[in-house]
Simulated assay, not measured.
Amino acid sequence: MSTDQNALQQLLDEAEIARLLTRYATAVDARDWDLYRTVFTPDAWIDYTSAPHGQAGNLDETVAWLAASLTLLPMTMHYVLNIDAAIDGDGATVRAMFYNPLQIPGVEGTSFCGGYYNHTLVRTGDGWRSARLIEENLWFENNPFASS
């Protein structure tokens, strides 16, 4: 590929990866588990253990856990930003910040958490997909799970 074609492919990949992460946030907040599955490879490993009461597992286990857990929350609104994608052929590592206001039953006001999503992506026939996600939850304001 020429330098111009490489630069164009880099931009196209970065745009597709950003759309993938937007689709992730949309799926979680809409509780759309079919859409959520389109973000991942069928054999993906997803780790949310840095969050209070978080779990890790394969795609089916994670969808079941999220579906049960998030029904308890009246509102979540994930923002994904500062996407840093290191693309190497048909693979990529991505570190992106997240900011998530949420409502927790029994907690006065809105709670907020944030951190990083660390993805290992692969290019598939259907576009970029996450083969591994490790959430790195760094902070949580108005956290009912914090020890007193």
Rank of each mutant, 00 (worst) to 15 (best):
R23H: 06
I46P: 01
E135F: 02
I46F: 01
F112K: 04
A86N: 12
R31W: 01
A15F: 10
M97H: 15
I17V: 14
L11G: 06
Q55D: 15
E14P: 02
Q103V: 10
T71C: 06
W128K: 01
A68H: 05
P52C: 13
R23V: 08
A30C: 13
G114K: 04
D60G: 09
D29G: 15
D13G: 00
W33P: 00
T76V: 12
F40M: 03
S50E: 09
A64Y: 08
A131R: 12
F112P: 00
M77P: 01
L70M: 09
V28R: 04
G109A: 10
N82G: 08
N143G: 06
P101M: 07
E135C: 11
E16N: 10
D47Y: 01
T3G: 14
M1T: 05
G54A: 06
I83V: 14
Q55F: 11
S130H: 05
S2T: 12
T93Q: 12
D43T: 12
L73N: 02
A146K: 05
I87F: 05
T120L: 14
T76R: 02
E108R: 15
R132E: 13
R23Q: 11
Q9E: 05
S50C: 08
I83E: 04
Y24T: 02
A86S: 14
T26A: 09
T124G: 01
E108H: 10
D29F: 11
G106F: 14
S130V: 01
S69R: 10
W33A: 04
G89L: 08
A131E: 06
T26Q: 13
M97I: 07
V39H: 00
E141K: 07
Y116N: 10
T124P: 01
V63I: 13
A30S: 11
I46H: 00
D84V: 11
T22G: 15
A7S: 15
Q10A: 08
E16L: 07
L12F: 14
W33S: 03
L21Y: 04
Q10E: 12
F112R: 01
A96M: 09
I87L: 05
L8Y: 12
W139H: 14
I104S: 03
S69T: 07
Q103S: 09
T76G: 04
